[in-house]
Amino acid sequence: MSGYALVAEGLHTYYGKSHILHGISLKVGEGKITTILGRNGAGKSTTLRSLVGLTPAREGKITVFGTETTKLPPYAIAEMGVGFVPEGRKIFANLTVEENLKVPVDRPGKWTIQTVYELFPRLQERRNNKGRQLSGGEQEMLSIARALLLNPKILILDEPSQGLAPLIVREVFRIITQMRAEGMSVLLVEQNVRMSLEVADWVYVLNDGEIAYSGTAADLQADEALLQSLAGVSAEKWEI
């Protein structure tokens, strides 16, 4: 591995008085797909929100390509090349597709409104439709396209397959591997364990705000017993 795009050390994050993350440390390899698995409420989304500055960690340190970002506001972290596809897609329902794509700031790079339309031809067809008129799959594509327009060096996705039809889920994962092929570093939070282990290089399993496992995706995938025992850590069943 050549290096790390993002390094987090000992993150402690709170929502008000409730202590959610208990010393999370993780690394996102440059040009790799890193995935975080875990049941609902394990702290996956909170980890991502801390990394992008939406819910700043109270303790710990985050560096992006060697620059510390722990105390920076979300827009400054985004400006450094961190693209975020939030849970639930969070597209702007009151704006058209094209207007949604004009919200992100311009960072130089290959992704422009034209090139994201080439990646997602469906969005070009629906360019004048309001966000609220899109299907779930189209919303997911718009949310990814919007993040790509930042020309990020790191792409962080929070449950991109949530609520999507299997065919669309395949498409989303195809895009994610394509981004890796183009040299982007990807951090992926997923409920879909099978699919994410298939594409990921490195995997973390989160439980109750702590890292329960860290290793290569191939190792975890090969070790059915380990996978089951990690899944068994949670009261809820994973979708394996």
């Binding site: 979300p74 827009y75 939030p86 702007f92 009151n94 919200v103 992100p104 327009l149 930042l150």
Partner: peptide
């Protein structure tokens, strides 16, 4: 207009809110 709906998401797109 985007911010009146969801200012948080506007900020993660690099806009200085």
């Amino acid at each position: 207009r985007a911010g009146t709906l969801d200012l948080e998401t506007v900020s993660i797109l690099g806009v200085n809110v």
